[in-house]
Design a protein around this nucleic acid. Structure first.
Length: 601
RNA sequence: CGGGGUGUAGCUUAGCCUGGUAGAGCGCUACGUUCUGGACGUAGAGGUCGCGAGUUCGAAUCUCGCCACCCCGACCA
């Protein structure tokens, strides 16, 4: 305890985890010239909060070690990928690392391909990184695995020449059968021992487009009886007669993930190739390919960590895509989606996501993170920087009978109690104001602090009011409250010490701004919806739209601004649907609400 | 019956390498401050460190054996 006194209070706890420990060890022993990581999404969907964890890990390690993190599109399967996704990925990554790790971002000049050099008689390929901040004005783009198709092809040829790969004519079905099962060894392909020359010629013809999809593949020659099924002569190249979003119609054979990934890492000079646990069993193959090729430079190594699982949502791209395609949500960026674009649109700051990532840590343990952890990170972030404003979501008219119509009482309100520098603003108390319907109950439950017939409550920053009478319509609904204001209980009044149990927000009726407010809740109503039929757990109340009354200062605000609507939650303009004429606010998150949990409420 | 991993409070985790019977954050409870049922402050509940042996004066940490759970049999990534 006492030795902590030298630590500055402002120093954020340095993140530490088993991967960072490994990297730190390598740095200490000067194993690499520099630390280079990479974030390699496949452009077949939008990035989600699980990817955010990976981005924070990979870019975090780069920035903590003065290294680089390459953004690379892992685009080796043209039938599943699309440029729409590469664009969204770039936007999401930029947004998440902006001002934090953008100085570590590894990009490359647009269109640039790897350079080649001969080392010890064999050809070596290198693709170097350029940082956008250090090369202002340069036309840059992310790395693409597809940029290395020529090189990967050359490596495949080299493997064939070493007798370590062969062209196999087995059908996909037979390949499957020959592979055996986890507990039964596989059977060698009848094509396994064909000559190097024949494989070379066949592979060349595969490239030339002489065979249909599925007719032949290139396979590594490893061990069909290996206990690890990924070592049973895995497919390296397959025929796919389809255009690629980056390379067009240049290729009709495409490398598999396992072959392309380790080589892409090597070509880019990656030192630490960090991925999720399910790739753990691929690591021997990753290492096999690189070592069999006898590559001259330092080899990258793969490290695995547990992917993020979050309560009350689903994380698989397939399910998220399904929600989008079946219009169960408005799109990938629907504010209820766990996508980075959805969270951003909802109003979650990038800094909150980064803090969340730091809080959950990195381990190899498959765990389910409580949404409360995410929610806490968001609230903590927003609490510090949000301007406080008054808004009434479900308006109930309140007539202050002793304040004449046409007059107003100015009230000074603080903009952010967490930040005195945010200053104050003036609210006008008038004859008619709105309060929230929920802040009045005719027959309140015990411990209800707010307004009731004959009761008193404080209108925040104004004064205490007393409810004298309740006006109802023909069907018995409360339509209006008549109250008297005790102006002496204002901050400037003579009775400032009077206490009431409840304080509520209000909006002057004649100066109110009207806006649509979208109240978002969790997308699923159970913590683990992913039980086979996840759609049955969709929360039917995940979106409620209300017409709200806002205080005048909320007119014409910017889309980047964050607000706390007092007592309600954090809100921001919807960046897509909001217009100056018809503002739309999204509720990013409610305030923590202990009253909501009260029994009997 | 194969291979690869993982097990520390309700949840996420630190500690394990270099043994001295556990610390944090979230969540929860109570009290206090407050013109947000927020925020802040204080106090507190909650852990047979998966189980069982062994080594040791002493084991969450070292050894062995078990158990549970996750991943692997796409020409997906």
């Amino acid at each position: 305890m006492s030795e902590e006194k030298d630590t500055p209070v402002t120093a954020p706890a340095a993140p530490s985890d088993f991967i960072r420990d490994i990297v730190a060890g390598h740095v200490a022993e000067k194993r690499y010239a520099g630390i280079v990581t990479r974030f390699p999404p496949e452009p077949n969907g939008y990035l989600h909060i699980g990817h955010a964890k990976s981005i924070c890990l990979n870019f975090g390690i780069a920035r903590e070690n003065g290294g680089q993190c390459h953004l690379r599109m892992d685009d080796t399967n043209p039938t599943k990928e699309d440029v729409e996704y590469v664009e969204s990925i770039m936007e999401d990554v930029h947004w998440l690392i902006d001002g934090w790790a953008d100085h570590c971002l590894g990009f490359k000049p647009r269109g640039k391909l790897p350079t080649s050099q001969v080392v010890n008689g064999s050809e070596d390929f290198i693709q170097e990184a350029v940082n956008p901040l250090k090369s202002p004005g340069a036309d840059l783009e992310p790395f693409f695995a597809s940029d290395y198709f020529d090189q990967i092809y050359a490596y495949a040829v080299a493997l064939i020449k070493k007798g370590k790969a062969y062209v196999c004519d087995l059908s996909p079905e037979d390949t499957d059968k020959y592979r055996g099962s986890p507990d039964k060894p596989g059977v060698e392909s009848p094509f396994r021992n064909r000559s190097i020359e024949e494989s070379l010629a066949l592979f060349e013809r595969m490239r030339a487009g002489e065979f249909p999809n599925g007719a032949r593949v290139l396979r590594a020659k490893i061990d069909m009886s290996a206990p690890n099924v990924w070592l049973r002569d895995p497919v390296l190249y397959r025929i796919r007669h389809s255009d690629h979003h980056q390379t067009g119609n240049k290729w009709c054979i495409y490398p598999m993930y396992d072959f392309a990934h380790c080589l892409s890492d090597y070509i880019e000079g990656i030192t630490h190739s960090i991925c999720t646990l399910e790739f753990e069993v691929h690591r021997p193959l990753y290492d096999w390919i690189l070592t069999e090729l006898g590559l001259p430079r330092a080899l990258p190594h793969q490290y695995e960590f547990a992917r993020l699982s979050l309560g009350y949502t689903v994380m698989s791209k397939r399910k998220l895509l399904q929600l989008v395609q079946e219009k169960l949500v408005s799109g990938w960026d629907d504010p209820r989606m766990p996508t980075i674009s959805g969270l951003r649109r909802r109003g979650v700051p990038a800094s909150a996501l980064r803090q969340f990532a730091a809080n959950i840590g990195v381990t190899k343990f498959n765990s389910l993170t409580d949404v409360a952890v995410l929610e806490h990170a968001i609230r903590e972030d927003l609490n510090r920087k949000s301007l406080r404003r008054f808004a009434v979501l479900r308006p109930l008219k309140l007539v202050l009978t002793n304040i004449p119509a046409g007059t107003s009482v100015p009230c000074e309100a603080v903009n952010n109690p967490e930040d005195p520098a945010a200053g104050t603003r003036t609210l006008d108390l008038t004859h008619e104001v709105y309060i929230d319907q929920e802040d009045f109950m005719e027959v309140p439950p015990p411990k209800y602090f707010r307004l009731r017939p004959g009761g008193e409550v404080r209108l925040k920053y104004a004064c205490i009011i007393k409810c004298d009478s309740v006006v109802k319509d023909a069907s018995g609904n409360v339509t209006e409250l008549h109250c008297t204001a005790d102006l002496e209980t204002r901050a400037s009044g003579s009775n400032t010490t009077k206490k009431v149990k409840g304080t509520i927000q209000w909006v002057s009726a004649d100066k109110a701004v009207e806006a649509e407010v979208r109240l978002y809740d969790r997308l699923f109503n159970v913590a683990e919806p992913d039980d086979g039929d996840y759609k049955r757990h969709l929360n039917p109340n995940s979106l409620e739209i209300v017409r709200a009354k806002l205080e005048p200062s909320l007119a014409g605000v910017g889309k980047e601004e964050r607000f706390q609507f007092e007592r309600l939650g954090y809100f921001a303009l919807d960046p897509k649907d909001s217009t100056p004429e018809a503002p739309v606010f999204n509720r990013t998150i409610t305030l923590k609400d202990t009253w909501a949990k009260a029994p009997g409420k």
